[in-house]
């Protein structure tokens, strides 16, 4: 498994453990899955996921990255974009 896959899997596992509802444990989540449309997550839950990832990855600023997005970008935000940011920022 390469580093990209590892980050994506960590993001997906963090989403599952943070939301911690029955359906999400077996819901098919991949890089294209969108937080608003596909997962029905509200912003308060999204922030919790971001905070958990920030704790996991330490130096990487996820909350700051999010606040630089505009509303259209936030609406369409996908799991893959979040993983991509972690990979890019971690280099």
């Amino acid at each position: 498994m390469n580093a990209q896959h590892e980050v994506l899997n960590t993001v997906i596992a963090t989403i599952r453990s943070t939301i911690n509802e029955d359906w999400i444990q077996h819901f098919d989540i991949d890089a294209d899955t969108r937080f608003n449309d596909d997962l029905e997550l509200e912003s308060i839950e999204f922030v919790k996921i971001a905070e958990a990832l920030q704790r996991h990855y330490g130096e990487i600023d996820i909350i700051g990255w999010l606040s630089g997005k505009d509303i259209h970008e936030l609406i369409g935000l996908s799991v893959g974009q979040l993983a991509e940011h972690i990979i890019t920022a971690g280099r």
């Binding site: 509802e21 029955d22 359906w23 029905e40 509200e42």
Partner: peptide, 26 residues
């Protein structure tokens, strides 16, 4: 609705269900 839902949950008068995801068990 998500904001009002959060308000009435935070006020202690409501529980949450995720509209498009909730299972019969939950």
């Amino acid at each position: 609705q998500p904001v009002i839902a959060r308000q009435v949950i935070d006020a202690g008068a409501a529980l949450f269900m995720r509209h498009g995801k909730v299972t019969p068990e939950t």
